[in-house]
Design a protein around this nucleic acid. Sequence first.
DNA 1: GATTAGCAGTCAGTCAAGTCGAGTGCTAAG
DNA 2: CTTAGCACTCGACTTGACTGACTGCTAATC
Lengths: 340, 340
Amino acid sequence: MVSERSLAVLRAIVQDYVASREPVGSKTIVERHAFGVSAATIRNDMALLEEEELIAAPHTSSGRIPTDKGYRVFVDRLTDVRPLTAAQRHAIETFLGESSDLDELLARTVRLIAQLTKQLAVVQYPTFSSARVRHVELVSLAPTRVLCILIADSGQVEQRLAELDHPVDDETLAELRIRLNDLVTGSTMIDAVALLSGEIDAADRRHAALLHTLAATLAEQAQVQRTDRLVVAGAANLVRTEQDFAGSILGVIEAIEEQVVLLKLFGEMATDEHAVAVRIGRENAAFGLGETSIVSSAFEIPGRDISRLGIVGPTRMDYSNSMAAVRAVARYLSRTLGES
Amino acid sequence: MVSERSLAVLRAIVQDYVASREPVGSKTIVERHAFGVSAATIRNDMALLEEEELIAAPHTSSGRIPTDKGYRVFVDRLTDVRPLTAAQRHAIETFLGESSDLDELLARTVRLIAQLTKQLAVVQYPTFSSARVRHVELVSLAPTRVLCILIADSGQVEQRLAELDHPVDDETLAELRIRLNDLVTGSTMIDAVALLSGEIDAADRRHAALLHTLAATLAEQAQVQRTDRLVVAGAANLVRTEQDFAGSILGVIEAIEEQVVLLKLFGEMATDEHAVAVRIGRENAAFGLGETSIVSSAFEIPGRDISRLGIVGPTRMDYSNSMAAVRAVARYLSRTLGES
DNA sequence: GATTAGCAGTCAGTCAAGTCGAGTGCTAAG
DNA sequence: CTTAGCACTCGACTTGACTGACTGCTAATC
């Protein structure tokens, strides 16, 4: 096992390397950190760390850089996620406190995280399955095309287009609209789905097909909702740190545009309450993201389901600061907003 | 005035430089293009073009590259916007023909343009001021917060939050909802705004403040609508061509994220029916976009107002292909969809 | 007058050689 | 376990020479 001081050396290496982007040598360490020992001793420790594959040397005789494994140990055991400065806390409060609706709140949140961390920020749109149905609106766009609009009492509006097998006239639609509204208004999303399923069985044959399509549409809508949407900001930060990505930045940009990959990654990250989860480098290789780390945390806005927010950046990033910012913002959204 | 052949030389220089990213010399030109003259003659022509500031030499003795002015002349007079290949036309039809609702159509459109041009594609969300009001919904989020939702018969849904001076109870809101729906349902957006203004004057004092806020909200909504939204795709292409931006790529990325800048630029570009407009390099410098060109065209989707789509890329781009693709897609949206 | 061949001059890019210095690993002594 | 000392490695940088792709100019030619 590696000694206590060796780990301190690892911490120093990570910190210095992140700050300077240059391999750090034994001499640099004794100069910049107050170890009570000489460079030779540090070298012995470094040899140990290299044995454990926590650090590596780019070429025979140069300083060391942390490996993915090294970053992992650093994040898990060595980083002190120091609280944000008072100024930063204040920024969070003033910046997010003014938001009016959900869209704006999330837009502000994602920009704020990007600014605090200097990385690409991502916020997953929170679902709202526990909200209740306020109104259902059906709009006929063409004889076989009906737009279903779902308005929740949380203020969220969802829409989806239904393609019907048979044309439906306006009268039938109006009738159906009334019936559906009577049926589901006031129910939670989950209940509404059940109610609709029941209605399908009871419906007269004439509208069975139509009803079925509509119900399925609403059901899918209520369940899937906006889980599949991401809000993104700070792409400029990604370009700024481009050289850290060793050419794999294209994969990152594609992942952001595709969204699916990121959502899948978010889904895989531990949902342990409000802890901050970190995925480092090769751990994401399966997703086409090498040299890429993700720091994220769950958050919960009153009236909506739990969701995730976080940042995406190069493996060589300031984990301490990123984790602190992500945690602070997630907590602010979950707690402070929850109280009001 | 520059001779006819000189312009042909300019065309050759632009084409070769775009293809190779390297300054092109007189020898290269006589080799790759079938001019019936020697390199020395080409050199004389190049001296002329340099005099006119259409081309420039990066350093004393090297080939020439087009200046912004050179690109301008090329785009205005020398480029033959050749029609797309049959395969490309087919791609447009199959790819866009399947779209169900507007959101999906635009998402597909922007991806298609990005793919055809290998550049960053941008589509401005088309407004729908000529659409009629189908339904107005008021949702109380808090005593002084009411969410206004506007549903158009075009299927578009818009929402906006109103902050009230005085709290309003649910009954009043229900009453108001009925009155507003009676008032504006079936009117065009423009008319609805006028009707609401009239209603404000006629309203009893009790609700004056509330009504005013709501009317203003809806009015703004009806007018501003979604003019202010952009759909973007192909960011990877931007990174791919990064070296052409001479370090100013950060500005481009910021402009895309901000959207405001791009919208302003779109607004400034000639709306001449369905012509393809091009802004080149320094012409955009005022917007913080150096080395950046924009190719765009207006399009019109039935039932919605005229809008714009286009691409953003480095000055050194294949204008011919970009213009052809932008024009073809804009036409497809405007015509083919309009007929169905 | 337009075109061409020929030639001197310019200058970025490349390659090899040489130097420098940061940093390691090892050994032996404290 | 720590430290000083030392030989060694190897990337980074500098220098200088060379090459080759161009141009611009001039004088001859069509």
